[in-house]
């Protein structure tokens, strides 16, 4: 590849970064509110992909309606996961909650592999493209960015403008005090887990409109989410969005110079470097 490919590749990566950021937002929200590292994040992203796929190929539902459906299913699924797997260990050590969510991961992957097998799927949609010089922006990518921005804005509106959103922030900040003020903290934790899961499903659903995927694809995006979240500072939503853009841009630019297979290597080198040098993330401590 040549330098001529740099601009289009960078733009493409940046756009993808919005969708990555959305997935990371789900991970960081759950961590920020309840200090749980959700290891079922990847399979849930994959479930988002399959939600759109099933609705589209089985019932002919418009993929973007499918994205909405995936978000709603994600909310309910997340609340269910919280009460089944997380609530009972919420006050235990990190290792326990890590194992609890990892077991959910194994269950989803196991059951979904039986049902869907691991063959690759894709959703065939074409929204045309926008061309300017050697830059081509696919319609599907444009819509994915728009949806990701809308969802992120809605999340901020929810957290800072509504009573349940403020209650979630209050519980995140001081659970005992929230209880003393009459806030049902268990319900707020379940809601936060539901929203985090909905964000993961939504980002998976959007990714399904861009690339082909299997039930195991979530793992890649889960790892990306971890890199992004660490980059932006654990528990910091703005950091997750910025981190998403950084990783997306980096991927776009790197593929111009090095083989795609080497991109993750660079990502994890950065990941380790950030952990060593700026463990609180590039954006500093939690906002």
């Amino acid at each position: 590849m040549s330098l001529e490919a740099l601009l289009p590749s960078a733009i493409d990566g940046l756009m993808l970064g919005f969708v990555y950021g959305l997935a990371a937002l789900g991970l960081t929200l759950i961590f920020g509110v309840m200090k749980v590292i959700n290891l079922s994040h990847g399979p849930i992203i994959a479930l988002g992909m399959f939600a759109v796929f099933i609705l589209f190929s089985g019932f002919g539902v418009n993929p973007y309606l499918g994205v909405l459906a995936a978000a709603l299913v994600g909310l309910l699924l997340g609340v269910a996961i919280y009460f089944v797997a997380v609530d009972r260990v919420i006050n235990a050590t990190e290792l326990t909650t890590l194992l609890a969510t990892f077991s959910v991961n194994l269950m989803i992957i196991g059951v979904a592999t039986v049902i869907f097998t691991t063959s690759p799927r894709s959703i065939d949609i074409d929204l045309g493209a926008l061309r300017a010089g050697n830059v081509t922006i696919l319609g599907t990518h444009g819509v994915a960015v728009a949806v990701a921005i809308l969802v992120a804005a809605a999340l901020y509106g929810f957290l800072f403008r509504t009573r349940p959103g403020k209650s979630i922030r209050a519980v995140a900040n001081n659970r005992a005090a929230a209880e003393l003020m009459g806030i049902d903290s268990r319900r707020m934790l379940a809601l936060a887990f539901g929203i985090g899961t909905a964000l993961a499903m939504t980002s998976g659903a959007l990714l399904a409109t861009l690339f082909s995927f299997t039930i195991l694809s979530g793992g890649t995006y889960e790892l990306k989410s971890f890199v992004i979240v660490v980059l932006g500072g654990l528990g910091n939503p703005t950091g997750a969005l910025v981190g998403g853009l950084v990783i997306g841009l980096l991927e776009g630019v790197l593929t111009v110079f090095i083989p795609v297979a080497w991109v993750p290597v660079v990502e994890y080198v950065i990941f380790v470097a950030v952990l060593l040098l700026r463990p609180a993330g590039l954006l500093g401590a939690r906002a």
């Binding site: 009573r163 403020k166 209650s167 922030r169 209050a170 995140a172 900040n173 001081n174 005992a176 005090a177 929230a178 003393l180 003020m181 009459g182 806030i183 906002a287």
Partner: peptide, 19 residues
């Protein structure tokens, strides 16, 4: 005190009126 330190003064008061 056990305030919600990352919330504003007004938000702390709003949280007080949860009942």
């Amino acid at each position: 005190r056990q305030l919600f330190s990352t919330l504003t003064v007004l938000e702390n008061l709003e949280m007080g009126s949860t009942p």
